[in-house]
Design a protein around this nucleic acid. Sequence first.
DNA 1: AATATAAATGAACACTGTTCATTATTCCAA
DNA 2: TTGGAATAATGAACAGTGTTCATTTATATT
Lengths: 219, 219
Amino acid sequence: MNSVHLYLTKSLKSMGTSERKAKEREEIKSLILNAAKKLFVKKGIDQVTIRKIAEDIEYSVGTVYVYFKDKNDILHELHTQGFGQLGGAMRILNSVSDPMERLKALGRVYLEFAMDNPDMYDLMFNMRAPMEFLDSMHKEEWNEGKATFDVLLNNVQQCMERGHFDGHQLEPLSFVIWSTVHGMCSLHISQRVKGVNLDNPETMMEKAYEEFVALIDKK
Amino acid sequence: MNSVHLYLTKSLKSMGTSERKAKEREEIKSLILNAAKKLFVKKGIDQVTIRKIAEDIEYSVGTVYVYFKDKNDILHELHTQGFGQLGGAMRILNSVSDPMERLKALGRVYLEFAMDNPDMYDLMFNMRAPMEFLDSMHKEEWNEGKATFDVLLNNVQQCMERGHFDGHQLEPLSFVIWSTVHGMCSLHISQRVKGVNLDNPETMMEKAYEEFVALIDKK
DNA sequence: AATATAAATGAACACTGTTCATTATTCCAA
DNA sequence: TTGGAATAATGAACAGTGTTCATTTATATT
């Protein structure tokens, strides 16, 4: 009687039970992730420690490691949730028919997301943790980033189809556009704007975005 | 006999000694910083620990804290050294007379610096440590960043004086230009480019910079 | 030589992520 | 109902981190 036989017998005879178990597993995973996110938004990323998560959900530290491989795993999950949020905000702009207008609005939504959720943005686009998790899983692809970049890519393509960005190359141009807005967000979040400018940083961000719009609007 | 009197007497009678002491202090500070930088470039930023620095220079951990307030202090010093290096590379471009050509070359130098010294770039423009040190010293100004941004600012101004960037505002435009190149560097260093693109990331960076140049070249 | 000043030390503290043998609980078949 | 197997939860222990500070050692001045 080998283990495979045992497993098969069991899976046949107790399907209902194992399904419930799987649900319970997901519930505890959510419990952990919600606690992590709570600490995350309230106290900042470096206050997210395994011990504090465990304390919050009233489980032991060891339990967290039953449900997640390591801390990078947790941070990667949070990063994925962040992309869900950003993706949702971006999807609303599908109603904007003019691709150029949609592109500009897309940038604003992106910027707003970054400024409203600085720690989440940092996790999604700057921190090593989520990428290290992918590496450890031997996953080559960064699906979340890819999907988001594709939205931009399609948008820029539609702009080009309507005669904008003549002489430009789709992919590198899209990457430059992403870089510009990401750079603004990144510098703002890492406190580099206030250090350089005497104005209030938010004002600078607003003015700068207008300059960006003026740049991409040129024929 | 109060302490002020004691200090004055001493400083008069042993100027040579205290000067030597001050030099010795600077030497040990350099010793610490060089060890820190060695670990930094060889093993990456998170391998720079006080214990490893102390071990490397064959002093105790406590000694490091005699010469530096905390770890942020050390990282801030390294960050300043990085700006010295970047500033030196940028200064070479003073020989380029055409401001528009100089601006494009400036961007390339900046990009090259970031790709050749990713950890240093991260420290200078992304990490919290150097800014936290400034905060703890109650310093409002980020001199290194300001000086570097000023180089860009002057350059853009000269471009505008020669008729480029018509209708744009100097400061916000300069900030957008900085953001674009910084964004490219940042995404590259945080491994977000390879995740999104199938091309080799370096090729993407090169193509993207050409798109950037094309954008700012428009009349 | 005695004393005042400065420098160097390293144990100790409070944290961190992670592991894993041990304990507790749940489940199913006989 | 009960014995045993599978699963889940535990928390002490480990190796690391930055930081502090009473104590020791060395240097300089009187």
